[in-house]
Simulated scan of single mutants.
Amino acid sequence: MSEEDPATAADVAMIGGHPVLDFVNTVAWRHDDARRADRVNSADAWARWGVAAGVLQPGAASGPATDESARDALVELREALWAVLDALVDDRPLPQPSWESVHRALVDARAKAVLPAKLPLRWQPAPPGLAALRGTLALQAEQLLASDDLRRVHRCAGPGCGWFFLDRTRAGTRRWCSSGDCGNRDRARRHYARKHPSAGPQGGPGS
């Protein structure tokens, strides 16, 4: 996972292959407390991220719904979805508080959604603003959790990374969020280990 400036990361860190995965990936280095960073941490940043992710129309997050409470609800959904996906990837029981939080968000999004009389039929979240972003992501999470794609959700094998992605390779062998990022770090570590066997597994670049 790259370490972009937080001001620009929302525009470039779209490696998950699904908006919900990119959503939970807005926290970098999930499993490394020393480097963990929230890349999208303000209402304005979330609005920009939503547009960059293709789940929010430009200007749709303006208005009274763009406030701190809407941002906090969005972050709560992100953290709950991350915990649920993390458990599913490891084939662990779902953490009940997180699952209940996701479930509430799904029910709320469905209750507030509208179905425009046009094709293709697709539920649209309401009201506008960051609540619409949360509603859209909740509805898309519902689709992901009910689809065959769920079994393709993998977690990056890079130490400390923690980002999720849809593995669409034929053999299901994708290991990295990005071959040019965590993949390169792994290759550098293995190369260093071959050249410096006495250094041990923690030595070398990327450690």
Rank of each mutant, 00 (worst) to 15 (best):
P58T: 03
G129I: 02
K195T: 12
H103G: 09
G135S: 12
P125F: 08
P201C: 03
D149N: 12
H191F: 09
A141V: 07
F165T: 01
R39K: 00
H154N: 08
D44S: 11
D149V: 06
L88Y: 00
G203Q: 06
D167A: 03
G129S: 03
G183Q: 08
A141S: 15
A109I: 05
A7C: 05
A105Q: 14
V24K: 12
G59H: 04
F165C: 01
H154E: 06
R110A: 14
A13T: 12
R175K: 11
D44C: 00
E3K: 05
A60L: 02
V153P: 01
D167S: 05
L81K: 01
L74M: 11
F165V: 01
M14T: 01
R110G: 10
V24I: 14
R36L: 08
A146M: 07
L85W: 02
S2M: 11
R152T: 03
W99E: 04
D32S: 05
N25I: 07
H18K: 05
A87G: 12
Q140M: 15
A141Y: 05
G17V: 08
W49F: 04
R187W: 07
N41Y: 00
D167Q: 06
K112R: 15
A61Y: 02
Q202E: 13
E4V: 04
G63M: 10
M14W: 13
D149Q: 15
A43V: 06
K195L: 14
R48C: 10
D148C: 02
H191G: 08
T173D: 13
N25D: 08
E100A: 15
D72T: 14
T26E: 09
T66V: 00
P159A: 15
W99R: 01
A7N: 11
H103N: 15
A9Q: 10
P125E: 07
H196Q: 11
A28I: 05
D38S: 14
I15P: 00
S207M: 09
A132Y: 09
S62W: 10
A65W: 09
S101I: 09
M14H: 13
L94H: 09
A193E: 14
V102K: 03
D167F: 03
H191Q: 11
A199M: 10
A111M: 13
K118H: 09
P120W: 04
A117C: 07
D167K: 02
L88N: 05
E142F: 11
L137P: 03
P6Q: 10
G135T: 12
L145H: 05
C161L: 07
P159W: 08
E100P: 09
W46D: 06
C156I: 05
D22R: 02
